[in-house]
């Protein structure tokens, strides 16, 4: 039985990361930018698992575990920030958050 080469998974992860990068750079809605960042985190997870399979070493999966935990913390704090911003400004359009912008 032939196996799918690991480089296909890596290529898919790179594609997802690129899509996430483009989204995080172009969108103005704070939530969508956050979703793009989650997408990037997930593509990194895929890379880690793929390399863990390739090297036959489970350390990559342990790293994915930690990435998941950090993503959860990041989502909680980030969404709380958005709620706080929304309370003051009635919008989370990031183009209007220009108080500190040069």
């Amino acid at each position: 039985m032939e196996m799918v080469p690991v480089s296909w998974y890596l290529l898919l992860a790179a594609l997802l990361f690129a899509i996430g990068t483009a989204g995080a750079l172009t969108r103005r809605n704070g939530i969508t930018i956050f979703l793009s960042i989650e997408l990037m985190l997930n593509s990194v997870n895929l890379t880690l698992v793929a390399y863990s399979r390739m090297l036959n070493d489970q350390t990559g999966q342990v790293l994915v575990f930690f990435v998941l935990a950090v993503a959860a913390a990041e989502a909680a704090v980030g969404l709380a920030l958005f709620i706080a911003i929304y309370r003051h400004r009635r919008t989370i359009d990031l183009n209007r958050m220009n108080l500190l912008r040069w």
């Binding site: 196996m3 080469p5 690991v6 480089s7 890596l10 290529l11 790179a14 594609l15 990361f17 690129a18 899509i19 990068t21 483009a22 750079l25 172009t26 399979r53 390739m54 036959n56």
Partner: peptide, 25 residues
């Protein structure tokens, strides 16, 4: 942003290209 993402994808894909064939598991 699109150009930046494409450049990134190109870098990663070209570095993977050298790996091709050695990743059979």
């Amino acid at each position: 942003a699109g150009i930046g993402a494409l450049i990134f994808l190109g870098i990663v894909a070209s570095s993977l290209w050298g790996l091709y064939g050695t990743t059979q598991v």
